[in-house]
Design a binder for these strands. Sequence first.
RNA 1: GCGGCGUUAGUCCAGCCUGGUUAAGACACUGGCCUGCCACGCCAGCGACCCGGGUUCAAAUCCCGGACGCCGCACCA
Length: 565
Amino acid sequence: MINVNHERTMTVARKRGFLWSSFEIYSGVAGFVDYGPLGATLKNKIMNRWREFYVVREGFYEIESPTIMPEEALKASGHVDHFNDPMTQCKECMDVYRADHIIEDATGRDVEGLENQELTEIISDEGIRCPRCGGHLTHVWSYNLMFQTLIGARGKKTGYLRPETAQGIFIPFKRLLRFFRNRLPFGVVQLGKSYRNEISPRQGVIRLREFTQAEAEIFVDPEHKTHPDFEEVKEDILRLYPAGRQMEESGTVDMTAAEALEAGVISSEVLTYHLCLAKRFLMDIGIPEDALRFRQHLPSEMAHYAIDCWDVEAFTDSYGWIEIIGIADRTDYDLRSHSQHSGEDLRVFIEYDEPRRIRKRAVKPDMGKLGPKFRKDAARIASALSEVDVEEIEKALDEEGRFILEGEFEILPDDVSFEDVEEVVTGRKVYPHVIEPSFGIDRIIYTLLLHSLVDDGERTYFRLPPHVAPVEVTVLPLVNREEMVMTALEIERNLRRSGFIAEFDSSGTIGRRYARADEIGVPFAVTVDHETLEDGTVTLRNRDDCSQVRVKIEELVPTLEKLRG
RNA sequence: GCGGCGUUAGUCCAGCCUGGUUAAGACACUGGCCUGCCACGCCAGCGACCCGGGUUCAAAUCCCGGACGCCGCACCA
């Protein structure tokens, strides 16, 4: 369908300084890449463009947290459990299995939390064999997708390189909430490196062990999953591949954002809005619309925390459709979990439009009685009583003459009294839900390069939009004559002073120099020719159609600024 | 992780089977020349045998191990 060429793209990218595999002189390590001079520039421009969309346009704020995280934090997020699986492999057919699953299937035993050694022993004691071919199984090893390290000089504390940037936002949630003056919705973003120790990363820049993410965590009221600017995007066309259509293999469907929301294909307005925004971003940096589709996660593949999740997928010739962005409704999973593990209340107080009066019956402990009776436990008992259902206490005292708290403390009718109180409730405390657009920057750059490469037999060049092209303008003397060279050098210098990434090139024929600049996607070429020396005009050449216009040297900067956008 | 195939200048590659020359070529790049507007004018130059071990008088070449790459299987909450 779409004409792209992975081999050609990567060859040019490597040759011209965009991207290559790391540590080459030490024979390389799979899953790591270097961004060369042009690649790093391109990446920075794309990340800055992303900030334009999410920080400037949406009003989110960017934070920066450590890439090394303590074990507790990742236990709370579920990563320690989910990224650390006991594995075993059949020695005959080479199938790999989760050791705990295979034991549970064979014996019905719950082996959660057992050590690898113990699991290995169970496999041999119970004579468990490969479910497919009956072959012997290897010893159990841990398959840990997170890079582990030790924190501190004595190395007592286990740490991990973060597997996603998102957790760095959830953890300081209370401070962030305060920064946003306790009001929902608000969004926080983080751009940076994350790490996953993939077993066999074989797809180059598609599956890296160290990769760059740009993530936004948008905290919303679970009862108001809307977006104030939805009107603006409601006519955007989305190429959707919902779970239902995947299961019946019926292909994608194009719908407007409003239609998709109306039909319930996408679960909420705010999620729909962010699908649109992601698409707008990708098109802004130069990825063609027809290279993209939105694929909904199947219920079976949805992460444990999400209720709806859409991947933005890009078409590639050698890897098929690849995920470049995940946009998920993570619900309140993360904040709830961090609350439980840390003991911090990470809920948000949401005021009602009108205060509500609630009549209810309350238990009132008589501390004059409870104090002498329970001594140092008294205070705790008093507060524990208020947690218990009032009716339950009243009923027990009525019918049995006593109430046993926590199976231990005997409360008698005289110890407490009951009263009807009217409470004014001005709001409720809730865990916000989290909408998370998560961008894989490396894959986006790969997709952009792949789809930008034009190789028409005549010329080879990256058709990058002017505002993301790493080199923005090249300045060339038509011939190597002193006056032309001097003029060209001066123009290059002035362009740099005016904020353009400009290059000067006098080596080889003019055609070769155009080709050289085209290949790395330089959108504009300024040529100093004979006429320049007479009337102070230069030619300004457009990369995509090779057309040229004459421009006065003084007008170069404003002209290029307009063209760059 | 398993199996198959592979790895030679910046890039694409010849040579390996059958061990022995100064490791060939093209493109790119650099310098010089050339009054030339779209890579294809001339001259010169730079630049490589993935790493480690073994066999041998001698290893790019044969053997073993490793790394990396491609393909298949597995894995990828």
